[in-house]
Amino acid sequence: MSGAEDLPLWAALPVAALLIAGAALGLIGSIGLVRLRDFYERVHAPTLATTLGIGFILLASMLHFSVLQSRPVLHELLITAFVVITTPVTLMVLARAALTRDRREGEPNVPPAGTGRQP
């Protein structure tokens, strides 16, 4: 724990709380990955980790290093922006791939392709 002794208590408390909250959300998301029943339900589980989970941990990291180095350390924002932009893309692509495969195999529980009808 290098440097942690220098961290004042008013900063240590929110950093600790944010760390635990973020890690807990990551854990809940992964538990959902195990517990939920089928693939389309499981797609929802990791969004917990990739929205607030990693967001809380990045906030904790920003606060920790900004207070320790007494200057704003903001490069965590890069990971935030990157994760916020890429997670929806991967999940969408993955869900579409799963849907395409299920349709091809004639899975009965997935909706058919769009009819292309004009309203």
């Binding site: 724990m1 942690a4 002794e5 961290l7 004042p8 208590l9 900063a11 240590a12 408390l13 950093v15 600790a16 709380a17 760390l19 635990i20 973020g22 890690a23 807990a24 990551g26 854990l27 941990i57």
Partner: peptide
């Protein structure tokens, strides 16, 4: 004091992750 709090939180977070 703050080192102890932070150490415990980091440990808990690592275990959960």
């Amino acid at each position: 004091m703050s080192a102890a709090i932070l150490g415990a939180a980091v440990f808990a977070a690592q275990v959960m992750l």
